[in-house]
């Protein structure tokens, strides 16, 4: 199993995030630095056992995640887990997330913040509900957290899912792929840790970025 971490300007925290994942018992980690302007890539490269890849220019979270998944396919993965690199996801949840796939019950496991929204700001909950409604209306599948980056995929799923979007709309596009290819999916409650650090990042999915994501989703639908 490979863990994929898309990262952009996370040099302050990436070392701790990777250590936490390793301490949870997962050693196969691919970090994709998405053209960071800080030394995220250098920090990741200096850590033992990490495969650090780099986008020379910033292409977005979706593009970086896809690069990580492509790399894990090349490395012969049977299972891929993606999670955010700002420390908001708890690596202890990985075991629970992958369980339905290991049991052969599904192809994609979706980490769902809204089933365990403790500590989640109200406006994030509202934004997630709006994201879910838009995803359902445009892509035809209702899920509890269409914008979560904490997901697990079987080999079968990563072979089939073919996304084209680069930024935050990627998360919704995966839902479309699940729907179109009739992949089996499961929603697993996960913990979210909204820290001062993660909330302060300007490139996170805020209100303006949310509108951009909405525009992109609609654009991809009509173009």
């Amino acid at each position: 199993m490979w863990i994929v971490l898309p990262a952009y300007n996370e040099s302050k925290i990436i070392k701790d995030v990777i250590k936490e994942i390793q301490d949870a018992g997962y050693q196969k980690i691919i970090l994709v630095d998405d053209g960071s302007t800080d030394d995220t890539y250098a920090v990741a490269r200096s850590l033992p056992g990490i495969i650090a890849l780099r986008h020379k220019i910033n292409r977005g979270k979706g593009a970086a995640t896809k690069t990580g998944i492509e790399a894990s396919k090349k490395l012969g993965c049977e299972l891929v887990v993606t999670l955010d690199s700002d420390g908001q996801h708890n690596p202890e949840d990985i075991a629970r997330l992958i369980q339905p796939i290991l049991n052969g019950k599904c192809d994609v496991a979706l980490g769902t913040r809204l089933k365990n929204p403790k500590g989640m700001p109200w406006y994030k909950i509202l934004a997630n509900h709006i994201g879910n409604a838009v995803t359902w209306y445009i892509y035809g599948l209702w899920v509890s957290d269409s914008q979560s980056g904490f997901r697990a995929y079987s080999r079968h799923a990563v072979e089939i899912i073919n996304t084209k979007t680069d930024r935050y709309e990627y998360d919704s596009e995966v839902i479309r792929e699940i729907y179109l290819h009739k992949l089996r999916y499961s929603e697993v409650p996960i913990e979210v840790r909204y820290t001062e650090y993660s909330m302060g990042k300007i490139q996170k999915q805020g209100f303006v970025n949310g509108l951009k994501t909405l525009y992109k989703i609609i654009w991809h639908m009509i173009s």
Binding site: E70, A71, K74, D166
Partner: peptide, 27 residues
């Protein structure tokens, strides 16, 4: 405008593909 935005979108996708191919060479 529609055609122009379509062309930009296509270019963006091509840039991403190139960036990805280049980064995967490190593997």
């Amino acid at each position: 405008l529609f055609k122009l935005l379509s062309a930009i979108e296509k270019l963006e996708q091509q840039i991403t593909t190139l960036t990805r191919q280049e980064s995967l060479q490190d593997l």
